[in-house]
Amino acid sequence: MLKILQNLDRRWIFLTMFVAVSVPLIMGTTFPETPSDQVLAVFDAVDNLPDGSNIVMALDYDPASAGELQPMASAFTRHCALKKHNIYFMTLWPQGINMIQGSIDILNDEYPETYKGKYGTKYVNLGFRAGNEGVIKLVVEDLKKSYTTDIHGTNLDNIPLTKNLKNIQQVDLLANVSAGYPGSQEWVLYGSSPFDIPTVVGCTGVQAPIMLPYIPDQLTGILAAIKGAAEYEQAIINHYPDLAENPKAKEGLIRMGPQLVAHVLLISLIVLGNVIYFMERRQGTA
């Protein structure tokens, strides 16, 4: 038995992981979530603002991280839409432009009475600019030095939402969804911390521990990994129960099914690996 386990082809582990994620995904298993204090801080930051407040939504991620971050970006968008906030979309990632389009589709398809045909007055898509933290430095001090036009080439001076916007210190909240560099940490370093811009972030699991020390002095709240997304979705559903009927608003909650099985599998693999290790040690082969 020990010999079999020692020489186990890793492809068997791959196959087990594939099954562990696939089965709950196909079955659509979901579990109830209780929003944590951190998630509630994010929820309150968006919800306690008066309706129609100005929010910058910086979606700094690409398709590679969409599996983890798309539910967060969608939840932020839906929550802002429910509060009828004015949204400024932007991204520091070249691939983020298409991620923004996903959020704009939500505004137009699910909240047409507030957003459809109201480009420029209820939301604006500033698109991408190269320069990483260089872009942040400019948008927090002199937006139009970096963004002279929106994504469609329209002059920002001719768009009602951006006409009188000198920099993003004037907005009520910065919501950032980030997959790494440039992202949440840079927004804190060059934006929210030196200029006291209220900021909430949604980030990947890899980034979550890095962002924790910024709470609560430099960051209002954080959605950490897919669990954070699921809890945020639950918090929104708790306050706006109509949303429970929209299956797309439960993307993160649905992903927690595969998450559970895969975590249990991983723990089993760690335990099994250690059992082999201690057996080898007893036999004197390790």
Binding site: A66, G67, E68, P258, H263
Partner: peptide, 13 residues
Amino acid sequence: YTVMGRIALLSGR
């Protein structure tokens, strides 16, 4: 947290 992230990416795909 890294494990959690990687599994989320796989389930997305």
